[in-house]
Design a protein around this nucleic acid. Structure first.
Lengths: 160, 160
DNA sequence: GGAGATTGTTATAGACGATTACAATTTTCG
DNA sequence: CGAAAATTGTAATCGTCTATAACAATCTCC
């Protein structure tokens, strides 16, 4: 158990509306700006769904991945999140201070910790998985099921 | 002309690779994580294309929008970028210090500035539009033209 | 057994954006 | 018209997030 970082103050990221009467030029043909707008929109919904739970997208991702991969290392966590080891450590510190994650020594590797959800962490992860999945579907109800699948496929292709 | 913020040190955001042998659980069905991975991938390409030019995605967006809408206000710029007025001001300060953007008083509104590209700003904007569009197409060459159009459409639908 | 790689840790620094408060100006409306 | 409310830019401050670099402990690979 280590020091807990400062309490979380939610960032109110409201969706980026199109400014009427403005010419967006080449931005309309580029993926970068569209991706950001979509991401902000999804984040706003995420924030809505996790109201009062003190959870951010990276924290959610971490909970899910640790839950699905008990004993994974902090470095692997950092790789999943796309952040440096030091960041993964601060994140783990926070989880430990909240009683959501445990560090356990690995028998065959004295360097790395194995990360495990506590029972409290399991409960929270289960609850959030449900809530976030529901919000995600709600937010994307403008899309048909086929469109949603297609979007996921194209994004995956882009990131690969 | 105001004080220039600290010089830009590029963040090396390498694409987030999938960690082999790891179970991503519900993340594979959620749009949030996919969006982030795709955005990071596009940012890495963007960074590659703007090498040596000291430009970030928000700066690029600002250049394009100011170029397409001469005389627009700082507040409108903030709205396009999804940031607060204070942030738009710092951004404008930086542009002004670089000699890329000019603030001009508006005749019919003594509160707001009108933002205009300088000739130098015009040249940079034109060059970057070309380079970024090229990189965007290159990065998305894993997609067919139809897929790319469809992706843009779906993202737009999501952000709306 | 030793060189090099990996892991966690700590400390430091920078970029970014929010918030708040304020002054000047414009708009709204009684 | 004239006062209240809204808008715009500005300044100061704060918090969050992440990277970088250096270090020790441990493991891997010849």
């Amino acid at each position: 158990m280590r020091k807990a970082p400062a309490p979380y103050r939610p960032r109110v990221l409201t969706p980026i509306a199109r400014v009427p009467g403005l010419d967006y030029g080449v931005l309309d043909e580029l993926l970068g700006y569209s991706l950001r707008r979509a991401q902000v929109a999804m984040f706003a919904a995420f924030h809505e769904a996790t109201r009062g739970v003190d959870i951010t997208p990276p924290r959610f991702t971490a909970l899910v991945v640790i839950g699905s991969n008990p004993g994974m290392s902090q470095s692997a966590l950092g790789n999943v999140l796309g952040i440096a080891r030091s960041g993964a450590m601060l994140l783990t510190d926070w989880f430990e201070a909240q009683g959501l994650v445990e560090r356990r020594r690995r028998p065959n590797d004295g360097r790395a910790w194995g990360l495990h959800l506590t029972p409290k962490g399991e409960r929270l992860a289960a609850q959030l998985r449900k809530r976030v999945l529901r919000l995600d579907l709600e937010r994307t109800r403008a899309l048909t099921a086929a469109e949603r699948r297609e979007l996921l496929r194209l994004l995956e292709k882009l990131a690969a």
